[in-house]
């Protein structure tokens, strides 16, 4: 019974974080971009928070929902761009998840977030080269890496502060892990 309650609470947390992804994606959509396809990655914030709360299957569900809903908001759901978005999100999120699980003693959220951002950019540039632009895509990589790195750094700083201060996160952790023990 306790486990059942914990699973339902967990699914509520997944849905809440997915809703935050939609909200932040919609907010990011209105910000003009100097380079097309370039994103700050505000919607990665719920993913970074999800790492600390969710087990791997629930975390995968959150990533899938983020990709789908983001595709719907940006209007890229039925286009090739969703492949770039999915590739970047899946690779970076899974890497960030395992970095947190196995190396959290040695690396802060800043390191995790910057690694995720750089990995996401690498996978997206590789896929863009493979699908649309060819090898010359690497010529435009410097601004992508610079902006991605800065955005990753800022998101990491924010997550570090949030995870240290948040009452909500503490409460969710207590409810999720107390029921499991």
């Amino acid at each position: 019974m306790k486990k059942q309650k914990s699973i339902s609470f967990q699914s509520n947390i997944v849905a809440l974080l997915a809703a935050c992804c939609i909200f932040l994606s919609a907010f990011e959509y209105i910000i003009p971009k100097p380079i097309p396809f370039l994103r700050i990655g505000l919607a990665n914030l719920p993913i970074l928070i999800g790492i600390t709360l969710l087990p791997f299957p629930a975390f995968l569900l959150l990533i899938c929902m983020k990709v789908c809903f983001q595709g719907l908001i940006y209007g890229t759901f039925f286009s090739h761009i969703i492949i770039l978005s999915a590739g970047g999100t899946f690779s970076s999120s899974i890497a960030m998840f395992f970095l947190y699980k196995f190396c959290k003693k040695y690396i802060s959220f800043i390191g995790i977030s910057v690694t995720g951002a750089l990995l996401s950019n690498t996978v997206q540039l590789y896929l863009a080269g493979l699908l649309f632009f060819g090898p010359s895509v690497w010529l435009i990589s410097p601004p992508f890496y610079i902006i991605g790195g800065i955005a990753g750094l800022l998101l990491g700083v924010f997550t570090n502060t949030f995870t240290g201060k948040s009452m909500w996160l503490t409460q969710c952790r207590e409810l999720l892990y107390a029921d499991n023990s």
Partner: peptide, 30 residues
């Protein structure tokens, strides 16, 4: 559920007026 929470987020986002952004997000999520 996702759409339900999205609706809730839209409704409560302007409700809490504090300069501390972390506290504000925390209050919304709570």
């Amino acid at each position: 559920k996702v759409f339900y929470y999205f609706g809730e987020l839209k409704e409560v986002q302007g409700k809490y007026k504090t300069k501390d952004i972390i506290k504000r997000i925390d209050l919304i999520l709570l």
